[in-house]
Design a protein around this nucleic acid. Structure first.
Lengths: 228, 228
DNA sequence: CTGTTAAAGATTGGATCCATCATGACTGTG
DNA sequence: CACAGTCATGATGGATCCAATCTTTAACAG
């Protein structure tokens, strides 16, 4: 069904790539860590060959960095990189909203609303489920927008940065959670009002502020690291 | 110096990937052709290993398609894919212009103008040089915009489609060349007037129409193929 | 005690080997 | 004569082997 994603080449490489990506995203493999091929191969129960190709795949995505004869490390994103990337992402998600306004159905709208309800403040602390719901909210809009390429590019930008930190951001700044929910509500309102330009602006500022939070988290993080 | 691009992993794979990509882009390897690893390895004077990894890299970019145990083929882009991709590209190049308005210097502007002069109609038929100048015009704006991620995403979209066809489009429709030059001139005017929103609109419509030409070319092409 | 150099260990990158899978042809049977 | 099944051929994918390079450590000299 997923005709857009480039037809999974050989299952194994993609599986290993996904596995490694998941471990990086979840923080199990921390930012800046060395990725030794032999280790990964043993941990995943495959030989080094698929690991090598998987690493190259991840490198293309920008999640890891591979230096010629010294192996791969999980990239440490600089705050300015996050701001750059999120500026692009904001533009794209804005476009996604514009398109969604034209194509959204009643069912789609209700699903969006239901998804955002899972994020309503007061339903317990942020956790993996609310984080998934947050992702789902954005993904749903991309699906509604009906432009596969657009969705893919946004996803790609998203996956260039370890995402577990988003959860951390939410945990460290409970206020952000309220903001997040409220901003989603404003996007929903714009979509319901069929106001494409408003939807674009709301989504853009929402994404920019999310990027700002992420960038600040990286700033604090690197400050901590350098001080020991 | 190119700190943005993901630090060339191991020279060989990237070289072979670039070599294969170049052959596809130039049309030497035609659209839809099978890519046999052994053949490519012999042609490029390397073993199959770097070829395999290079193919995977190209697959991630979307230029080729790899089906599990049957090898790789150069993807045959559907016209709707081109339109989708160019809608995204238009949005991004529009953003690039907005940023460029704020950051452009006199030197940068002169370089842009000089580059576009190479495209002025009447200086002989379209050729590889004018095609390169056309690319350069856009790339310059991306550089001026100062957002590496933005430039990379645009480049990536660009490289997902065999580009030689652009030259073919120009050759088949001489009128397009005039349009191309004139549209560039209007973008230049907007940049000089520091009118960011105008620059955005001009660039967007320019890219959209370029995408439309490309999509039409693919349409004609597939019609030809199916009939003959 | 410190800095430099050399050697050993470890890790990546390229090449080769082998198993698996798909395709196509050929043969036998209905 | 047509269709189905089997076998052979060729190509991909995974594993392993070997060489080259980098890092680290230790020893030696200043």
């Amino acid at each position: 069904m997923d005709t857009s994603s480039p037809a999974s080449s050989s299952a194994l490489v993609d599986e290993t790539a996904a596995a490694i990506r998941a471990r990086i995203m979840s923080g199990e493999i921390p930012i800046g860590a060395q990725l030794r091929q032999a280790e990964l191969a043993k941990a995943l129960g495959v030989s080094r060959t698929p690991v090598r190709e998987a690493l190259r795949q991840l490198q293309t995505g920008g999640l890891i960095e591979v230096v010629p004869n010294r192996g791969a490390v999980v990239r440490v994103p600089a705050p300015w990189e996050v701001r750059e990337a999120y500026e692009v992402r904001a533009e794209l998600e804005g476009l996604s909203c514009v398109r969604a306004v034209r194509r959204i159905t009643r069912d789609g709208f209700e699903e969006l609303r239901a998804t955002n309800e899972l994020l309503r403040p007061g339903d317990g602390p942020p956790n993996a489920a609310s984080h998934a719901a947050n992702d789902r909210f954005h993904t749903l809009i991309h699906e509604i927008s009906g432009n596969d390429r657009l969705a893919r590019v946004i996803k790609e930008i998203n996956e260039a940065f370890p995402r577990n930190v988003s959860a951390l951001v939410l945990q460290e700044h409970p206020r952000h959670r309220d903001d997040n929910f409220a901003e989603h509500e404003r996007i929903l309102a714009a979509l319901e009002a069929q106001d494409d330009e408003l939807a674009r602006r709301e989504m853009q500022s929402h994404v920019i502020s999310a990027g700002e939070q992420l960038a600040r988290w990286y700033e604090r993080r690197s400050a901590t690291v350098f001080r020991g």
